[in-house]
Design a protein around this nucleic acid. Structure first.
Length: 878
RNA sequence: GCGGGCGUGGAGAAACUGGUAAACUCAGCAGACUUAAAAUCUGCCGCCUACAAUGGCUUACGGGUUCGAUCCCCGUCGCCCGCACCA
């Protein structure tokens, strides 16, 4: 019997409409069922969705539909990370308004997402560029400010000369701006900061509670926060050599144990002492100037020679008033870390050693391997940084470095200089405060007014939101808000005198640091009056499962963790400790690249691939010329190796694209997009439809039932085992393994379903097949929802399969009564033993020893040992 | 330099807590159906012993622990990622 091919173009919109009409995915906050919040990182509205979005949102949708089928009240929203520089660039290049450009893109992309058949609650849709969104963000800024979590300060900051704005530390990758790729410059500017460093320890500690986060991400965050324990030591300065007003130098070290190996002090070029010393020393002043103007790119730092300049100042060793050490200004000491000053111990640090050799400073070994001889141990051109035992260190000799650390800390800690202890234990962090000011237009305005008399004044809450002006010009480089003729001129809210608005906007990462909290209220476009931070036992937060790219391992994921803490400190949330309980970082979508003779990239759509005798060849469809097949790389416009999701959905349907994204590659790894793979996925779509629709008449009206023996029993066992395995795999996001189990079940059902379609199935078989098909459809429903509905309808299923519960497997059917145990002789498999599942050890042993091949191998001798691992294996040691 | 990960057939991969290596998919080969092709169905598909075996070998390479190692330990090689003058 011939069946019509499944037509996704007709079927998919039909079911999308059916779900929408039934309001299936609109979530209610007062639903009594257990909540489950699944979220994918929201997109930037760049214009069109790409395959990375398809992969990300497919995974999230499988989780959402699966949890819904398991009886949870699922929240699965979508929004738009809608502020950002591309809108300004489009405005400049195409003379469009950034707002119009952004909202047009949102419309297009929303339409594209809808063709994917995602189970999203569009009633909660948000765009961060909407005043109804950023109004709350401005209020949060003011609340954070009041709570001491915001600071306006002058600092050395990263300036991106192409995007014409400052950037946060996290947004500088290898010395370049994360968006523009331009080498960043250091500038001293007064800017707004979120005091993320005030949470350093808590952000570090919190990582330990995130047991459903990838270890890799937690490790990256821990390294970024960069905690170290050390000692801050005040070294007296020799008055005869020191400018007046200075009498001590405070340094930070993690190795106070090596204090007797010290041979010099080094301070940063920006250190106050350096500046003072330079006043009467033109050569030093010139050196400081040179250091300040050095390159700051990664390559510059890599090759920069370690250089110093002796200030002439001498420091006095804390344990020996007669021991004087030179104080250098050094180009490798950073003012931003610790105290901007160090002592150098050449024998214990490679960089200090190189410096000492260059300036002929003493090198005294103070730690040696425990088994070395103190009399002969020397440090030549390689510093000794391992653990060991103290030498040449007076009263520390013989101690372990760790104990020497404590002894120095205790001794100096109890000794006073200038009424202060000479040393204090200090924990240092590498993390810097989050610079959020951006000299750009298309962002959330910072709600502050600068007044000559009152300083920086918060905009009163009842004047929020401070909206962006619509009439801006992008003709001039720089900040359009600053160039606007009238917008910034306002009166001071405090004294009423003429004042100026802050013309900077907030980093767009601020927008995305709390959007997950904004979804918790179904607002349907109606403005809620309060911040919708639903929290506590009935609340939505934290997100149960968050899915997105690894590129946000530090940036967005660290900022969001800070934000939840700040929201708590300001009373916006009460109980939630972390924003994302479970995090999954999915891999990229990659594709072969193609280049014409001459190196110009061409798109996959323009080439034709043939394979003869195992050799793949690519030709340009238009001209027939040969094209070079290049490496597999992340889909990108520049490499032209992109495949448009619209084209795929138009020709194969959304289910095929979804199934391909879930098959084969583990979700955390990159997936290689291939035409053959997509066709394979589509073949499976057609195969399921063919099998189910052809057997449908013989299964109509049949009550699902399982059998325990015979061919029907085999069908039931296959179905129940698959149901169990697929449920477990989806729950742990093992989509590729779930797909493999579904293929296995389909293969097992192939012949029985064909027989049933031919009218050759008895009642028991029809019952088993009916149940098996219902299971199969339940399993594919989260992954290929449209196909599942079409098949469900074909077998006369009631209602929508999207509303049905995940079926329960029968425990008795997923275990076999008779099992086949592999039998090894001396660790090599030599045969099988078929035996009852519950057979005890001695029964298995007896049965094994009576096997022909075992007796032959033993040649009449008793075995040395028989190892029986229940339900796994038997090993006979001959 | 520091920190982390990975390495399994022609390709993507699977293998639970140390227990049958290669499930499942793609590509390929053969057959059935067909006048033919497509589609579909069935079978084969790590390497070697010219063929074949419940022969031997095989999870980057070399060693170790174990009755048994893709998995644990030591060493070597290769690839990838993050951080990087952090005191």
């Amino acid at each position: 019997m011939a069946t019509e091919r499944y037509n996704p173009r007709a079927s998919e919109p039909k079911w999308q409409k059916a779900w929408e009409t039934a309001k299936l995915f609109e979530t209610k906050n007062d639903d009594p069922r257990e909540k489950y919040y699944v979220l994918e990182m929201f997109p930037y509205p760049s214009g069109r969705i790409h395959m990375g979005h398809v992969r990300n949102y497919t995974m999230g949708d499988v989780v959402a539909r699966f949890q819904r089928a398991n009886g949870r009240n699922v929240l699965h929203p979508m929004g738009w990370d809608a502020f950002g520089l591309p809108a300004e660039n489009a405005a400049r290049d195409n003379k469009v308004n950034p707002r119009d450009w952004t909202y047009a893109n949102i419309e297009t992309m929303k339409g594209q997402l809808k063709t994917m058949g995602l189970s999203l609650d569009w009633a909660r849709e948000i765009a961060t560029c909407d005043p109804s969104y950023y109004k709350h963000q401005q209020k949060l800024f003011l609340d954070f400010w009041k709570a001491g979590l915001v600071e306006r300060k002058s600092a050395k900051v990263n300036w991106d000369p192409v995007d014409m704005t400052v950037l946060a530390n996290e947004q500088v990758i290898d010395g370049r701006g994360w968006r523009s790729g331009a080498p960043v410059e250091q500038r001293d500017l007064t800017q707004w900061f979120f005091k993320i460093t005030s949470m350093s320890q808590d952000l570090l500690d919190g990582l330990e509670t995130l047991d459903r986060w990838p270890e890799k991400v937690k490790l990256m965050q821990a390294n970024w926060i960069g905690r170290s324990e050390g000692l801050q030591i005040r070294w007296p300065l020799d008055p005869a050599t020191t400018p007046s007003g200075e009498d001590q130098l405070e340094i930070y070290t993690t190795r106070p144990d090596t204090i007797f190996g010290a041979s010099f002090m080094a301070i940063a070029a920006d250190h106050p002492l350096a500046k003072k010393a330079a006043k009467n020393n033109p050569e030093l002043a010139a050196f400081i100037e040179e250091v300040r103007h050095r390159g700051t790119s990664a390559a510059d730092l890599e090759t920069a020679e370690k250089k110093g300049f002796d200030t002439g100042i001498r420091a006095v060793h804390p344990f020996d008033p007669d021991w004087k050490l030179p104080v250098y200004v050094a180009n490798f000491v950073l003012m931003e870390y610790g105290t901007g000053a160090i002592f150098g111990c050449p024998s214990g640090d490679q960089r200090d050693l190189d410096f000492a050799r260059k300036y002929n400073l003493p090198v005294v070994p103070v730690v040696m391997p425990a088994d070395a001889d103190a009399a002969t141990f020397v440090v030549d051109d390689e510093a000794y940084v391992e653990d060991g035992v103290m030498i040449n260190s007076r009263f520390l000799d013989g101690l372990k470095p760790k104990d020497a650390f404590d002894k120095v800390a205790d001794l100096l800690g109890s000794r006073a200089t200038n009424d202060q202890p000479m040393a204090e234990r200090k924990v240092q962090f590498r993390l810097r405060d989050w610079l959020i000011s951006r000299q750009r237009y298309w962002g959330c305005p910072i709600p502050v007014i600068h007044c000559d008399s009152c300083g920086a004044v918060p905009v009163p809450a009842n004047q929020l939101p401070i909206e962006l002006p619509a009439d801006v010009s992008f003709d001039k480089p720089g900040n359009p808000l600053d160039h606007h003729p009238t917008w910034k001129h306002v009166d001071c809210p405090q004294c009423g005198k003429p004042a100026r608005r802050d013309t900077d906007t907030m980093d767009t990462f601020v927008d995305s640091s709390w959007y997950f909290a904004r979804f918790t209220d179904p607002w349907n476009g109606t403005e809620p009056t309060t911040l919708p931070m639903v929290d506590g036992p009935k609340g939505w937060l934290p997100v149960n499962q968050y899915i997105g790219g690894i590129e946000h391992a530090i940036l967005h994921l660290l900022y969001s963790r800070f934000f939840v803490r700040a929201l708590k400190a300001t009373g916006h949330v009460n109980e939630v400790k972390e924003p994302f309980e479970g995090l999954f970082t999915q891999g990229m979508v990659v594709h072969e690249t193609y280049r014409r003779n001459g190196g110009v990239h061409v798109t996959p759509a323009e080439v034709n691939i043939t394979e003869t005798d195992g050799v793949r060849r690519a030709t340009l469809i238009a001209t027939g010329e040969d094209v070079d097949i290049g490496p597999i790389e992340k889909m990108s416009k520049s490499k032209k190796n992109v495949v448009d999701p619209d084209d795929i959905i138009a020709s194969y349907g959304a289910d095929t694209a979804r199934w391909f994204m879930l098959s084969d590659s583990p979700p955390e790894r990159d997936v290689i997009w291939t035409e053959a793979g997509v066709e394979g996925a589509h073949r499976f779509v057609q195969r399921v439809w063919r099998l189910v629709s052809e057997a449908a008449p013989s299964l109509a009206g049949v009550a699902p039932a399982h059998s325990t023996d015979g061919e029907a029993g085999a069908v039931s066992k296959a179905a129940h085992k698959a149901l169990k395995a697929v449920g477990e795999e989806i729950a742990r996001l093992g989509f590729n393994k779930a797909v493999a189990r579904i293929y296995e079940l389909t293969n097992a059902l192939q012949a029985p379903l064909a027989a049933a379609a031919a009218g050759e199935a008895n009642a028991a078989m029809r019952g088993a097949l009916r149940e098996a098909v219902e299971f199969l459809l339940a399993m594919i429903a989260p992954m290929m929802p449209h196909l599942a509905e079409e098949c469900w309808s074909a077998i006369g299923g009631e209602g929508l399969i999207a509303e049905r519960r995940w079926p329960a497997f029968e425990p008795a059917l997923v275990v076999d009564n008779e099992i086949v145990l592999p039998v090894q002789i001396n660790g090599k498999k030599r045969g099988d033993l078929t035996i009852a599942r519950d057979a005890d050890q001695s029964a298995i042993e007896r049965a094994t020893l009576s096997l022909d091949f075992v007796q032959k191998a033993l040649e009449g001798r008793p075995p040395r040992k028989v190892i029986v691992v229940p339900q796994r294996i038997v090993n006979v040691v001959a």
